[in-house]
Amino acid sequence: MSEVRTVLGDIRPEELGACDAHDHLFLRSPRLPGQELDDVPAARAELAAFRAAGGSAVVQWTPYGMGRRAADLPGLSRATGVRIVCATGLHQAAHYGPELLDGLRGGLAEVFVSELTEGIGTSGVRAGLIKVAGGFHGLDAHARWTMAAAAEAHHATGAPIAVHLELGTGALDVLDLLCGELGVPGHRVILGHLNRSPDPVTHRQAAESGCWLAFDGPSLAHHATDWRMPEAVLALVEGGYGDRVLLGGDTVVAGARSVNGGPGMPYLLRRVRPRLAAAVGAELVDRILTEHPGRAFAVDWA
């Protein structure tokens, strides 16, 4: 039976509830100096605010080597009542030092499989998805290396592969590699940040693969997110692909948290939900927030 792997154990997909399908409780990167998400009390407060807004689950896409704080996630889940799904995987090379990347050469897929099946470090927390990243309108050698390892880990475990699309671009290149060359079924791939490149032709072509299309990161400055997102989702619905959509918040810096005056996780339910419901109907939005994440992240764990 397919189950979603949370930090407190595997659950049935229907138990997930209203889910923020792409966000971060903890994250560190040399590209974001001084803006780290590394505060446990702040993470707890953000989860509590999300819970108060009606949220039930959060999928943290923070991958290997970027400060996931996996050992803190079970306690946060218990304290707030919010289910948490944790990621393995590897981001773009710019987020790491060369020493870390050199240490992973020749064994990246094994790291992913170990974190999915045995646990992350000594935390005992098992990851529930693999997160990798493309580049701007293309795939460099690093992206191809990480995606090949992700595909190998998928074939060993069944875990879904979530992909950061740089500024929402490169979706079809990612699908050509993962689903074409590497044999990953389309429904096991989640494309993130499609809201940042609101191209209905590309969205429809990507949806034809059977992949999941995530509209995540609402209210980020300089992105055509809030006001273009409803029409982009409506176009997918009218094309017959409304059953492939996911929604997420993608909070990546401390100042974006609701407890620090930003939109944060609650914004997804407080503002995005009614805005999208006005375009495609409340019933579909409810399914996008509950049923769709359960299907996207559920696995017959190998």
Rank of each mutant, 00 (worst) to 15 (best):
Asp38Ile: 06
Asp38Val: 06
Asp39Trp: 11
Val40Asn: 03
Val40Leu: 02
Ala42Tyr: 11
Ala42Gly: 12
Ala42Lys: 04
Ala43Pro: 11
Ala43Cys: 07
Arg44Gln: 06
Ala45Tyr: 00
Ala45Phe: 03
Glu46Ser: 04
Ala49Gln: 01
Ala49Gly: 14
Phe50Thr: 03
Phe50Gln: 02
Phe50Arg: 00
Arg51Phe: 14
Ala52Arg: 15
Ala53Ser: 13
Gly54Ala: 09
Gly55Lys: 03
Gly55Asn: 05
Ser56Pro: 01
Ala57His: 08
Val58Leu: 10
Val58Cys: 00
Val59Asp: 05
Gln60Cys: 12
Thr62Lys: 03
Thr62Glu: 07
Pro63Ile: 08
Pro63Tyr: 14
Pro63Gln: 02
Tyr64Lys: 01
Tyr64Glu: 00
Gly65Tyr: 11
Gly65Cys: 10
Met66Lys: 04
Gly67Ser: 06
Gly67Asn: 07
Arg68Thr: 00
Arg69Asn: 05
Arg69Glu: 05
Arg69Cys: 01
Ala70Ser: 15
Ala71Phe: 12
Ala71His: 15
Asp72Met: 00
Leu73Ser: 06
Leu73His: 10
Pro74Cys: 03
Pro74Thr: 08
Pro74Glu: 03
Leu76His: 09
Leu76Ser: 12
Ser77Ile: 02
Arg78Ile: 06
Arg78Ala: 11
Arg78Phe: 12
Arg78Ser: 13
Ala79Cys: 12
Thr80Asn: 02
Gly81Asp: 10
Val82Pro: 14
Val82Ile: 15
Arg83Ser: 15
Ile84Thr: 03
Val85Asp: 05
Cys86Phe: 05
Ala87Phe: 14
Ala87Arg: 02
Ala87Ile: 10
Ala87Tyr: 10
Ala87Cys: 09
Gly89Cys: 13
Gly89Ser: 13
Leu90Lys: 04
His91Asp: 11
Ala93Asn: 04
Ala93Pro: 12
Ala93Gln: 14
His95Ile: 04
His95Lys: 08
His95Ala: 12
Gly97Asn: 05
Gly97Val: 11
Gly97Arg: 13
Gly97Trp: 15
Pro98Trp: 14
Pro98Phe: 13
Glu99Arg: 14
Glu99Gly: 05
Leu101Ala: 12
Leu101Gln: 05
Leu101Trp: 12
Leu101Glu: 09
Leu101Pro: 12
Asp102Arg: 08
Asp102Asn: 09
Asp102Gly: 14
Gly103Tyr: 13
Gly103Lys: 03
Leu104Glu: 08
Leu104Tyr: 11
Leu104Gly: 04
Arg105Leu: 10
Arg105Ser: 13
Gly106Ser: 09
Gly107Arg: 15
Leu108Trp: 09
Glu110Asn: 04
Val111Thr: 07
Val111Pro: 01
Phe112Leu: 10
Phe112Val: 05
Val113Pro: 01
Val113Ala: 02
Val113Tyr: 03
Ser114Tyr: 06
Ser114His: 15
Ser114Gln: 09
Glu115Ile: 10
Leu116Trp: 13
Thr117Trp: 02
Gly119Pro: 09
Gly119Thr: 13
Gly119Ser: 05
Gly119Met: 02
Gly119Ile: 01
Ile120Val: 15
Ile120Gln: 04
